[in-house]
């Protein structure tokens, strides 16, 4: 497999009893997420908001019982989705989102899980017919130091190298990799999970410095220069608004509506 497909595997409505559900497999890191959305439902009295719908997100881990990590993931999802969902359309109700991590190379790594979680949830919300302002797409980009040795089978992850894995110009320039798997991600010096709306508006930034590579050297002590970050952001915006939206349209286009 010289260049595996970069299109995620999406299966809509795998759960027949929920209002909207989706299973999403990341093409490169093979992280698989299953989400279910129910709503608008009756809300518990203590969570009731007089003018808005309450959004409840539960992330269930792939192994073991949920802990701080899952709570953090759920919180990131909840705040991001809050800006997408038109909560005023269904006041005093509950929109319940449950995400189950089905498969992941590293169940402890938030960056590997976050972008599939977000994409899968947005698709489920669309299927469930929850009123939304716009749609969003998330991508995880990792920056690898120049000259990093990337195995041939993973070459398709390098941004700008999707078509031909032959020519590589790693000399001098850092390598930006999208949705890396664990092996590639281990060599990264910084990781950026970015989410953009269809119109190119930024919804989420989760950037972090990685212990491997040579993080922590920049002036602001963040493991990356601001120029580098802006470059990454532009790549992410292009991918989310172009490819991401196209993937979403293709997946939903197959669903019949009356």
């Amino acid at each position: 497999m010289a260049s595996a497909s970069l299109t995620p595997e999406i299966s809509l409505c795998p759960l027949p009893q929920s209002d909207g559900s989706c299973q999403y497999t990341c093409p490169t890191s093979r992280t698989t997420i299953l989400t279910s959305v129910n709503g608008p439902l009756e809300v518990r009295a203590k969570d009731e908001l007089p003018n808005d719908a309450t959004i409840e997100v539960v992330v269930k881990p792939g192994v073991g019982v949920g802990g701080v990590r899952e709570t953090r993931l759920a919180h990131i999802l909840q705040t991001t989705l809050k800006s997408l969902i038109l909560t005023t359309h269904h006041p005093r109700t509950l929109i319940q989102i449950v995400a189950q991590i089905v498969q992941s190379e590293d169940h402890t790594s938030i960056p590997l899980l976050l972008s599939p979680l977000l994409n899968c949830t947005v698709l489920s919300l669309l299927i469930a017919g929850i009123p939304m302002r716009t749609t969003g797409w998330s991508i995880h980009l990792a920056v690898l130091p120049a000259g990093t040795d990337i195995p041939n089978k993973n070459r398709n992850m390098i941004v700008g190298q999707e078509t031909d894995g032959e020519a590589m110009q790693t000399d001098g320039e850092d390598v930006v990799v999208r949705n890396p798997n664990r092996a590639v991600f281990a060599k990264a010096k910084s990781s950026h999970t970015l989410t953009f709306s269809k119109e190119g508006e930024m919804l989420l930034i989760e950037s972090l410095e990685c212990s491997e590579g040579k993080g922590g050297e920049s002036a602001d002590g963040q493991g990356w220069e601001i120029d580098e970050w802006v470059k990454v952001m532009e790549i992410a915006q292009k991918l989310c608004c172009g490819e991401g939206v196209e993937v979403m349209r293709n997946a939903l286009g197959e669903k019949k509506v009356f």
Binding site: S18, D19, G20, L126, A128, G129, M132, K256, V257, F258
Partner: peptide, 28 residues
Amino acid sequence: ILPYRFGTLHVTSSVKKPAASITSTPRH
């Protein structure tokens, strides 16, 4: 005019009563 659900656009462009809606099949 903001579409807030996914679906197909359905337009009735009659002179008397123009109408538009998004056709979708939610479970509820």
